[in-house]
């Protein structure tokens, strides 16, 4: 018990919260980027532009089938070879964005595909252009169905940022390791703190997803 009290000193909690902040920052930026990119790629996949869609589809498949850890290594160690130097934070954001937008593209493609084609035809018959019908009729409906899947993908993203400790991203996981690395009495308290912090963040997001689902349905 004493270990827990000592471990949760203000200094340590503050340090953990700093790490949590980095985790949230990296996740939030990656979520925004990957949602935009994923939607664009998903649309390209869906509307079947000759060659482009096939190439995009193949690249998406490649990324989806590689471990995220490997993509993190490529952005951190590989990109500087073509002149792009990123610090661990931006490398992680980029890796997350690449990986998650590939995941999201697939979700969005199949989400749009699941909307009744009659909706599109009806909208077109009423004089909307293809893109108007897509934007105002098809996408909102697809979005409603996709929300749970997309949010659980975002939850994965938050959890997966912990993998970036391998390139010394100073996130929650790394900060916890620094603390228990210096005093092994703190190991158990730190794991409890890690579990609680990650859980609270991710669970809040999944509650939000249930709420959105109900609101939009």
């Amino acid at each position: 018990m004493q270990n827990f009290i000592n471990a949760y000193s203000w200094v340590n909690i503050h340090y953990l919260l700093e790490g949590l902040w980095i985790t949230l920052e990296v996740s939030a930026v990656s979520i925004v980027f990957s949602y935009i990119l994923g939607a664009i790629l998903g649309l390209i996949r869906y509307i079947n532009v000759k060659y482009l869609s096939a190439i995009v589809g193949f690249v998406i498949d490649l990324i989806r089938n590689l471990p995220l850890l490997l993509i993190i290594f490529f952005t951190y160690f590989g990109l500087p070879n073509i002149g792009i130097r990123l610090n661990p934070i931006w490398s992680s954001i980029l890796a997350m964005t690449i990986f998650e937008s590939a995941m999201l593209a697939e979700i969005i493609r199949s989400g749009i595909g699941a909307v009744d084609p009659g909706q599109m035809e009806g909208a077109r018959a009423n004089g909307l252009t293809y893109w108007q019908a897509m934007w105002h009729i098809v996408l909102p409906q697809a979005q409603k169905k996709m929300i749970p899947t997309i949010v659980s993908q975002f939850i994965s993203l938050i959890k997966d940022t912990s993998l970036a400790t391998i390139i010394v991203l100073p996130d929650l996981m790394y900060h916890a390791q620094i603390i228990y690395g210096q005093n092994s009495n703190y190991i158990l308290p730190m794991f409890v703190a890690l579990a609680v912090m990650y859980f609270v963040v991710c669970y809040m997001l999944s509650i939000l997803s249930h709420y959105l689902e109900k609101r939009l349905a």
Partner: peptide, 23 residues
């Protein structure tokens, strides 16, 4: 289900590697 879906795999794995052997 809710607990283990919302905690990173790395945390769970490290728990078994580092914490469990201590106790």
């Amino acid at each position: 289900i809710e607990i283990f879906r919302n905690i990173p795999l790395l945390v769970i794995t490290m728990f078994f590697y580092v914490v469990v052997p201590m106790f």
